[in-house]
């Protein structure tokens, strides 16, 4: 399945974020690892926000044509 076509998988993005936060909160990582994980998290948040910002309705019709008043 084409993930670009289907948009960002918010659910797995949130799951990943939750894991990152938990790992950070446990505080067992080295400083370098913490920073690395933190950066991952921040960029994930950024990607999510960006995806919400530029989200537009994308409609596909299984049988082809959409009525003219609907923009696919």
């Amino acid at each position: 399945m084409d993930s670009m076509d289907d948009g960002l998988d918010l659910e797995s993005a949130f799951e990943e974020l939750e894991q990152i936060v938990q790992v950070l909160e446990e505080g067992n990582l080295s400083l370098e690892e913490s920073l690395e994980v933190f950066e991952q998290g921040v960029s994930l948040v950024r990607v999510c926000n960006a995806s919400l910002d530029r989200a537009e309705q994308r409609i596909e019709c299984l049988t082809g044509g959409l009525p003219s008043d609907i923009n696919g």
Partner: peptide, 30 residues
């Protein structure tokens, strides 16, 4: 990520659904 809608393409129901879904980042499959 992908929302299926089974309805008449010409009905008001579809338009209502599309309006409410709005710019949520998902693909809508009619």
């Amino acid at each position: 990520r992908r929302i299926g809608v089974v309805t008449s393409p010409d009905g008001a129901a579809l338009r209502d659904v599309l309006r409410v879904l709005g710019p949520y980042p998902a693909k809508i499959v009619l």
